[in-house]
Design a protein around this nucleic acid. Structure first.
Lengths: 251, 251
DNA sequence: GATATAAATATGTCCGGACAAATTCTAGAG
DNA sequence: CTCTAGAATTTGTCCGGACATATTTATATC
């Protein structure tokens, strides 16, 4: 329990990140148009009373998101006003990410405490063997008897009241919804990869073992981007899922 | 050929990049085992007679590749000894989407005229049996001999000069770059799905037949969103690609 | 040997400065 | 009006310093 890394408990954010996030927020709020320039390093130094170094780190932080591009002699130009993989095309709200499509429901199959193996420990950024709350279940569409995915949710112990909700199968859904309230969420890291469907899961999903599947892993961070709220890992048989999006070029 | 991005032609390299590349080369050459530590900042300063700032930039450059992880109080630890999938983040520039990552190149294997079967005809929204220009090839990383993907490009006949460029293997790259000039592109429809790697492709990619793979299909439309410029279908062995993104909630 | 504490080490944040390189702006000439 | 050259601006590279924070190592005690 005490093995949870203290970095997960950090409260304060470095200056450069705070300013960077502020700039990101402004861009996403439409305050800076595409092709417009962000404040220069010099302007940021004046506005926030920081060194040029910190201003550069802040802009670097923003650039890392892909929203802007920095150009020597020119400035920092806005390239996008939405995050590259915005959820809107696929799913509308955070709550829909995992659990509730318009017409699906999540059927919890298991709710327990587990000790994380090496892979999961790495995913959650804790030590192997750490205790963790685990909830697993399938996602079902009402018109179709075959589940569309199996999801495992891993919740690092926070020692708070939400933990208790997770531990009880009957309240686990509520706990997930509560934990994933969009007011709590600052960032989601998502990973999509292909894999083969393990036999145990194949059976539960009514699909063929070792057939192609898509694995989506999402790590949900809080507003300060330090606290890992939970990790959700969902496996979709290939025929039941494809990730579609429409992209518009920068110009 | 002259259209290759000018950044590929840079002669001088900043110190931090030179040292970073050297470290990368050492890792890829097996000189640093997984979990081992790279030279500390201090050691790099001594070894290369550089400031701490430059040492940090060098290590930052290496960290960006995903090969290592820096940890305060600990050092810089090797996490991989081969390059992770280079298409880690959604790539900003249209020209990079398919052909040119920062450090990859596209090696054309075939260029011919085909008659579309039913699946492809549907994809290109034409009649089965329609003639179509086809270019196929693999994508290679300089540090790694294994191809990372196989791409098939289908170009509906436009009866224009670009068509002729497509038909010649030696000018096909140029044709793709020209057709995908971002001034021409109005929309891209993208589809990501899991599949099994067909035997023929598996062999060309140095991977196992029927192993998990990711298929990305992209349809490129012109500015008026009416003309389908081309369709690109790329298959990535699972271990060589995962699609990562960072999402920020609407707020 | 196990445990606790202190010291040392290594990276992270932030400050300041200087010069280089790329881009933009301005003024002058034709 | 267009073009060119020079100046100004903006980011990039690199130097130095200081303090903070996290991890590892060393030492003392039981």
């Amino acid at each position: 329990m005490t093995k949870i890394k203290s970095s997960l408990k950090n409260k304060s954010m470095p200056k450069y990140q705070r300013i960077g996030e502020k700039l990101i927020g402004q861009i996403l709020a439409g305050k800076h148009e595409i092709d417009s320039l962000l404040p220069t390093e010099k302007q940021l130094c004046t506005a926030y009373k920081i060194s040029r170094h910190t201003a550069r780190e802040a802009l670097r932080y923003v650039e890392k998101t892909g929203l802007v591009e920095r150009r020597q002699g020119s400035g920092t130009q806005v390239k996008r006003t939405s995050m590259p993989e915005q959820i809107n095309e696929f799913i509308n709200s955070i709550n829909d990410l995992l659990l509730f499509g318009k017409r699906t429901r999540f059927d919890i199959r298991i709710s327990d405490m587990i000790q994380l193996d090496a892979d999961l420990a790495e995913l959650l950024d804790v030590e192997t063997g750490t205790d963790c709350i685990h909830v697993g279940g399938i996602r079902i569409e009402p018109h179709d008897k075959k589940p569309i995915s199996y999801s495992n949710i891993y919740r690092p112990q926070h020692m708070d009241s939400v933990d208790e909700l997770f531990k009880d199968k009957d309240t686990a859904i509520y706990a997930v919804v509560k934990a994933l309230d969009s007011n709590n969420i600052g960032k989601i890291e998502q990973q999509i990869e292909a894999c083969l469907l393990p036999a145990g899961l194949a059976e539960q999903l009514g699909a063929e073992a070792n057939s192609a599947a898509m694995k989506i892993t999402r790590r949900y961070f809080d507003k300060e981007l330090k606290d890992l709220i939970l990790v959700a890992q969902s496996i979709y048989p290939a025929k039941r899922f494809s990730h579609s999006s429409v992209l518009y070029p920068d110009s």
